[in-house]
Design a protein around this nucleic acid. Structure first.
Length: 1017
RNA sequence: GGGCGAUUAGCUCAGUUGGCUAGAGCGCCACGUUUACACCGUGGAUGUCGGGGGUUCGAGUCCCUCAUCGCCCACCA
């Protein structure tokens, strides 16, 4: 059988062909099998917001590598795929489109219509996302695909909520939340980012009502948000201003003492400021404190409302004027003060960000309008004292990018106290391992704060909270209505004078309680609420199914560091709460992909690389292998980004300037192409320039190398037939490659066990390229042409390739399958001492086991010797510019033992360096004019009488000699050091001694050769 | 402000418990189409391991400190 294989691997067709084959064979599907151990991964469900990016490619590649590895190892491997409804993000995207394309808001079309539109968005993107995963080769069990909003997950969510409600772990309360005025929902602290914007610091006077003689007639306060003064309910001053200042001074002095020279001036300036402040502010603050104690009141300007002057530690005498206005309904800190001091809380804001009737004359204005008006009016009343320019840290919503307003609203919370503790314990007692372990700290720190988890969102896209309110019914009514039902639970919410009724299974009708009206809670649950139960909801919980028992706890969770708290921690506590068992044994936190500037990739920066572009250009295997090769434990993955010119295919470095342009001109061919920013028709008409990274070239080249080595094997295994090979039939190179293979198998298995992807990839890269291709394949060429030696050589070749394919398969699934199938036709049985039929797919072939009988240190040492000599000969050839086809003769002076080892390698010097060995041994007499290379314990001579470049040789030898002398000096110095000899371990000292001897031999040989050459010159 | 991480060849990165004459890929230089592979082969050049101090017989590796960069958390009127 002879086959013509293309010189380059065609990834596109192979990917399609083999993925379909695997799916058809059902290799991805898993069922509980009591004879096998389970290995389970649930996917971190990608948001249905948009297509997958390179970070997802990384995340999923790492998962697939493990799943494929374990599957081959004989585990019953299950990878559960799915997507996340991503409440805020998805609704925001659809709402934005709705507005852009149809100029409609969600209120125009209503809840049902909006939700319907989001479902169709979801359908499109889910398909796209799952399609991308398939293109990458992910071996997910598609029959088990879940969506966080599908009926299975919804049921689990309802059960969780009900369970928590019954245990009084969810509660309703008034809280100051981060209010997104655009999306009109509360967002959690984690969904807020701060941005520095230029702003002002305004100073106002609040008049004192009926000041006594000698007392100040007004209090000065400062604020960055003047409009909030409309909701002020107090002004605070510190209860012990002098003491507070003392404390600040003490702290500053301590810091000054410990500070570096560079920091000192700054701290000193603060101290000076403090001293000044004692003079200018302190007397007045003391006075005000006394007035506060006396129950004095201020007049809130514009509103003409009386507000108290109070003493509270929140007022920092070292800040601003030392007095602070208190707006409990619109500032988190003021809210605390409000609670402490029992102040009224006046919310002046409507949900849409305009002011409400509590803002008096300013009602209906937006915040910005109100701000201007308030400042202008205060100025009119001569109460505006001063305006400073100042940088303000402004909170923004992650999702809508709109500014965040602190707003007092009714929200649902999960009480974190005990739950958080269980999650902390699971990690500290080692039931859940986090790798790399340094991330455990953040996990603990966050959980230990035990902050209640706000779970309600004022959205339409999500799990609607299964709570019904009823104001009018009595407890008796409820008992009667729900008699005998354990899926309904209620309790009285005294603060609002109503019943909170939770239904676990089915929605309650409005008239479920005869004669009373039930209204349902409109809010939906935080997306993380459904994500938190993902590891068990996907496996059929709350039913205690066979599957849940078999696959849960899952084996490992692979995710990125930014959601350790938001997601990982909550999964642990939810798993423990619902199932009574941790959700996973291992958490592996992978690196982040950054661009060439060290910045995270994002569409908004224009530096995002689309995995589809990478796959189109390099192939899925290259994407995967490249990712594995770069995934180390400590470093993020820095990936310089380039445009690929669609005209000349050259790569153009991406800069901060060109990455935001709608069109870019290729500096090589002057052709223009469009980018993601193209908007006008002219730009859009240009061909698109893909954003890629040359970081994947290494992997692409490697795949091609592998392909060609396989091609070579195919071309040479035509008359292959397997038989048991006896030990004595194996040649040095056979034993060597088998020995190396055993070692590499061990390394790769070990590395994958410990999530050391880069180690595994590098070990395989080095073995395949530098050992298998560069040596074994080269050496076996001659033997394959000779009928007498063909059998053994072919069989070792087939076996080694077979094993290598299996080792590489988790990282390079498509190419290895393509080759496996081709190899299967030629060599259906593979092995050395006992050939065995190969599996029908590499995907289900057994993972290679280390057979220690092949590990042979002696052979490896011998082979290393051969490699050194070969390299020495090649070096001489290159140095002397010997034409490649010209055969040369060489000899090696060495001891008899060494000579015996080199003897069998003679033919390989011929084939691999066109060099004929004329003699090995101690009695070798070098010719008068020779180029040499000195090795420890051996010296190579090449007779080059007719073409030697003596000058070049002398120069080289002289350099070499100098270098060796340097090393000798270093070693001698070390060995002459008494302390070294007496204190260092004997092994180390011995090694140094041996090294010195070798160096000295080398030096002598080199010096002699140099002398000889000089004589000739 | 608190925490975590990084800093090694022009670029991107390896470097286990200290024993290093510091490696790889790309790039660079020279030579080369020898039928698996030019997405290749052979050979070559390249580093005060961010700066300073310390521990040690010995430091890229451990400790302190400074500098620069990145990420996370918390934030003051």
């Amino acid at each position: 059988m002879n086959r013509e294989l293309p010189k380059q691997y065609d990834h596109a067709t192979a990917q399609k062909r083999w993925y379909a084959f695997w799916e058809e064979k059902g290799f991805f599907h898993s069922e509980p099998d009591e004879n096998k151990r389970p290995f389970t991964i649930v996917i971190p469900p990608p948001n249905v917001t948009g297509a997958l990016h390179l970070g997802h490619a990384l995340n999923n590649t790492l998962q697939d590598i493990l799943v494929r590895h374990r599957r081959m190892q004989g585990f019953e491997a299950l990878w559960v795929p799915g997507t996340d409804h991503a409440g805020i993000a998805t609704q925001a995207v659809v709402e934005r489109r709705l507005f852009e394309e149809e100029n409609l808001t969600r209120h125009d079309i209503g809840r049902d219509e909006l939700v319907e539109r989001i479902w169709s968005w979801k359908a499109a993107y889910e398909q796209r996302i799952l399609g991308q995963l398939k293109e990458m080769g992910c071996s997910c069990d598609w029959q088990r695909t879940r969506f966080t909003l599908d009926p299975v997950c919804a049921r689990a969510v309802r059960h969780t909520f009900f369970h928590m409600f019954k245990d009084k772990l969810v509660f309703r309360g008034k809280r100051l939340v981060n209010w997104d005025t655009m999306l009109q929902t509360a967002v959690s602290d984690d969904e807020v980012f701060h941005e520095t914007v230029p702003g002002h610091f305004w100073y106002f006077h609040y008049p004192v009502i009926d000041p006594k003689p000698g007392e100040p007639t007004e209090v000065t306060i400062a604020t960055t948000r003047p409009e909030t003064m409309l909701g002020d309910t107090a002004v605070a001053v510190h209860p012990d201003p002098a003491g507070a200042l003392d404390k600040v001074e003490k702290d500053l002095k301590e810091r000054l003492a410990a500070a570096s020279e560079k920091q000192k001036p700054e701290i000193q300036a603060q101290l000076d400021d403090l001293a000044e402040r004692r003079k200018t502010h302190l007397p007045r603050l003391v006075q005000l404190r006394d007035m506060a104690a006396d129950g004095r009141k201020l007049l809130l300007p514009l509103m003409n409302r009386e507000i108290p002057l109070i003493a509270d530690e929140w007022a920092k005498p070292e800040m601003g004027t030392g007095c602070v206005k208190i707006t409990p309904a619109h500032d988190p800190n003021d809210y605390e003060v409000g609670l402490r001091q029992s102040l009224p809380m006046i919310s002046i804001l409507n949900l849409d960000g305009t002011l409400n009737e509590k803002a008096g004359l300013y009602a209906g204005k937006t915040i910005a309008e109100a701000r201007d008006a308030v400042v202008a009016d205060l100025e009119k009343e001569a109460l505006l004292v001063e305006v400073e320019d100042r940088e303000i840290e402004l909170a923004h919503s992650d999702r809508s990018k709109a500014p965040i307003e602190p707003l007092l609203t009714d929200q649902w919370f999960v009480k974190m106290d005990d739950l958080a503790q269980t999650a902390m314990d699971a990690v500290s007692d080692g039931r859940v391992r986090i790798t790399p372990n340094r991330y455990a700290k953040g996990y603990h720190d966050w959980l230990s704060e035990k902050r209640d988890w706000p779970i309600s969102r004022q959205l339409w896209w999500g799990h609607q909270i299964p709570i019904w309110f009823c104001k009018t019914a009595t407890e008796e009514d409820l008992k009667k209505a729900f008699a005998g039902r354990d899926d309904v639970f209620w309790y009285r919410d005294e603060a609002y004078g109503q019943w909170l009724i939770c239904a676990q299974e089915e929605d309650l009708a409005e008239d479920a309680v005869p004669g009373h009206q039930l209204t349902r809670e409109e809010d939906v649950l935080d997306t993380w609420f459904s994500s938190a139960i993902w590891p068990h909801s996907t496996l059929g919980w709350p039913e205690s199914t066979e599957e849940l028992k078999y696959y849960y706890p899952t084996s490992v969770l692979i995710t990125s560091r930014d959601i350790i708290t938001l997601w990982v921690a909550r999964m642990v506590l939810a798993g423990l709460f619902n199932v009574g068992e941790i959700p996973f044994h291992d958490v592996y936190i992978h690196p982040k992909i950054l661009d060439g500037f060290g910045e995270g990739m994002s569409k908004s920066k224009g530096n995002g690389v689309d995995p589809l572009d990478v796959m189109e250009k390099f192939g899925a295997d290259s994407l995967r292998f490249g990712i594995a090769y770069l995934t180390t434990e400590t470093q993020d993955i820095r990936m310089p980004v380039e445009f690929e010119c669609p005209h000349c295919q050259k790569l153009i470095e991406q800069t901060k300037k060109n990455r935001i342009l709608p069109r870019v001109k290729c500096p090589f061919c002057a052709g223009e192409f469009s980018t993601q920013w193209a908007e006008n028709p002219e730009d859009k008409a240009l061909p698109r320039g893909a954003v890629v990274s040359d970081r994947f070239e290494l992997a692409r080249n490697f795949c091609n190398k592998l392909w060609n080595a396989s091609r070579f094997a195919m071309m040479n295994l035509e008359e292959y037939s397997s038989r048991p090979i006896a030990d004595e039939e194996l040649l040095v190179e056979d034993r060597w490659i088998l020995s190396r293979l055993a070692t590499v198998t061990d390394e790769v298995t070990e590395a994958l066990d410990q999530f050391k992807y880069a180690d595994a990839a590098r070990a395989l890269y080095g073995f395949a390229w530098d050992e298998f291709c560069s040596f074994f394949v080269e050496m076996v060429k001659g033997r394959l042409q000779d009928e007498a030696t063909r059998d053994v050589a072919g069989q070792v070749l087939a076996y080694t390739l077979d094993t290598l394919l299996r080792l590489l398969h988790p990282m390079i699934p498509f190419l290895t399958e393509e080759v496996w199938q081709l190899l299967g036709e030629l060599a259906p049985e593979r092995g050395i001492d006992s050939p065995e039929p190969a599996a029908e797919s590499v995907m289900i072939a057994p993972w290679p086991e280390v057979d220690s009988k092949w590990a042979d240190a002696k052979i490896e040492a011998q082979f290393a010797r051969f490699q050194e000599v070969l390299r020495g000969v090649r070096e001489i050839r290159a140095r002397q510019g010997v034409p490649p086809k010209k055969a040369i003769e060489f000899m090696v002076r060495c001891d008899a033992e060494e000579a015996a080892l080199l003897e069998p390698m003679k033919p390989y010097f011929e084939s691999m360096a066109a060099a004929h060995a004329v003699g090995f041994g101690p009695e070798v007499a070098p010719p008068a004019l020779a180029a040499n290379v000195a090795l420890p314990g051996a010296e190579i001579f090449v007779d080059l009488a007719d073409l030697i470049d003596v000058e070049a040789e002398i120069k080289k030898k002289q350099e070499e000699l100098d270098k060796i002398e340097g090393f000798i000096l270093g070693k001698k110095k070390k060995l002459e050091n008494e302390n070294f000899v007496s204190r260092a371990p004997a092994v180390v000292v011995e090694k140094e001694r041996e090294g010195l001897v070798e160096l000295e031999e080398k030096r002598d040989a080199t010096a002699l050769a140099l002398e000889q050459l000089k004589k000739q010159a």
